[in-house]
C-alpha cells in the first residue's frame, strides 16, 4: 500500500471492513443453520445439512477473503460479477436450507 497515491476517504479500507462485517453476519446465519440442523439429533440428514451449510459459508468466506486481499492495493479493481453472484448465491442457499429444515 503506497501512502502517496492513497485517497483520503480511505475507500479501500472501508470496503474491506464492509466485507468483514458481511462475513461475520454470514457466520452468525451459518451457525444458526447448524444449530437448526443438529436440533433433532445427529442423524445422516443432519450431517448432510451441516455439511451443506458449511459449504455455503466457505463459499462466502472465499469470495470475501479474495476481495479483502484485493483491497490491499491503492486502486482496487472492480468487484467481479462472479464474486457478487457467489456471495448472493451462498446467501440464498442458506435461506433455502432454512426453508427445507422447516418441514
Amino acid at each position: 500500500m503506497t501512502t502517496a497515491g492513497r485517497d483520503p476517504g480511505l475507500q479501500p479500507e472501508r470496503t474491506r471492513l464492509a466485507w468483514r462485517r458481511t462475513t461475520l453476519s454470514c457466520t452468525v446465519v451459518a451457525l444458526l443453520a447448524v444449530r437448526q440442523a443438529l436440533h433433532g439429533g445427529a442423524g445422516p440428514a443432519a450431517i448432510v445439512a451441516v455439511s451443506l451449510s458449511a459449504l455455503a459459508w466457505l463459499g462466502f468466506l472465499r469470495v470475501a477473503h479474495l476481495r479483502v486481499l484485493g483491497m490491499g492495493t491503492a486502486r482496487p479493481r472492480l468487484l467481479s460479477a462472479r464474486g457478487a453472484l457467489t456471495a448472493a448465491a451462498c446467501t440464498v442457499a442458506l435461506a433455502v436450507f432454512a426453508t427445507a429444515m422447516l418441514f
Partner: peptide, 9 residues
C-alpha cells in the same frame, strides 16, 4: 438479506 434469513431461523 442475511439478517432477514437469520430472523427466519
Amino acid at each position: 438479506a442475511l439478517a432477514l434469513i437469520g430472523g427466519g431461523f
